[in-house]
Design a protein around this nucleic acid. Structure first.
Length: 256
DNA sequence: ATGGCCCGTAGAACGGGA
């Protein structure tokens, strides 16, 4: 089973690239983030080519989906915990089961800058994710938490740690909060097979990609029973190259 | 040395991303 996660930075702007990616890699399940549209605007080729889709959409911002070759069951839309108060819930989480595995596609808030309201929202959102996991999953089941976590967990996930440690993507308190999610019982599937400085996001500016000035903020985390089946992992740098790419590359993991 | 982009919504810049 080939699993991918990819922040597409607008599924409409990325339609041709998404279609080519699916044809080139032939994944079985794909978790997408930043659809940046309502579900009525999803590309028609997905249904036409037989993809099963579970998704939550939103105008302009956010939006997450799970694409699957096999039917998706037990679909859960959003955190559904009222944590956004009176405001409409941001479209940042969807979960569904396929082939005996539960998948989650998550788009963790960026947080903008330390001390901002958006940063506080990010920190609380990770707490809400912990509560969602406690209510909707168990560590003993095969579970894959995938998505744009907007956190680089370790120094080797950052091209210049000193530069980034005062930002919301690598600050110690943000990394510590992410570790409370990992404590549910997750293993970073990527690190089972890759030990070096490998990134999944590069700024559009400043020639960041050719200079490999990147961060690894997109992740596939699995519970133990699924981690035991993980036979490989990679970042699809080819997808990030050339014109018209998302600023995030897909991350892929294979399972027996 | 510095800053260098892209998206959606607009219907020009601007908010947001990371």
């Amino acid at each position: 089973m080939l699993l991918a996660t990819w922040n597409v930075n607008s599924i409409r702007a990325r339609e041709a690239r998404l279609r080519a990616f699916l044809e080139r890699k032939k994944p079985d399940v794909v978790c997408l983030q930043e659809l940046k549209c309502e579900l009525s605007q999803l590309p028609k080729f997905l249904a036409e080519e037989g993809w099963h889709v579970a998704a939550v959409g939103q105008k302009t911002y956010n939006g997450v989906a799970i694409l699957s070759r096999e039917p998706l069951t037990d679909v859960k839309l959003g955190l559904a915990d009222g944590g956004d108060g009176d405001a409409p819930e941001q479209a940042r989480l969807v979960s569904a089961r396929a082939g005996g595995v539960r998948f989650i596609s998550a788009y963790v808030p960026n947080g903008q800058s330390l001390g901002s309201e958006k940063h506080a929202y990010k920190m609380e959102w990770l707490n809400r994710l912990n509560r969602w996991l406690a209510l909707n999953a168990v560590p003993g089941e095969p579970l894959a938490l995938c998505g744009d976590f907007n956190v680089a967990p370790e120094a080797r996930d950052v091209h210049d740690p000193a530069q980034w440690e005062t930002t919301v993507l690598y600050a110690p308190e943000v990394r510590a909060r992410l570790e409370t999610v990992r404590a549910f019982g997750f293993t970073d599937a990527f690190r089972l097979h890759q030990q070096g400085n490998v990134y999944s996001w590069w700024d559009y500016r400043a020639g960041s990609f050719p200079r490999d000035n990147g961060l690894r903020i997109d992740h596939i985390w699995t519970t133990a029973s699924l981690a035991a089946r993980c036979t490989g992992a990679e970042v699809d740098r080819e997808e990030r190259a050339g014109t018209g790419a998302s600023d995030h590359a897909p991350v892929l993991a294979t399972f027996s």
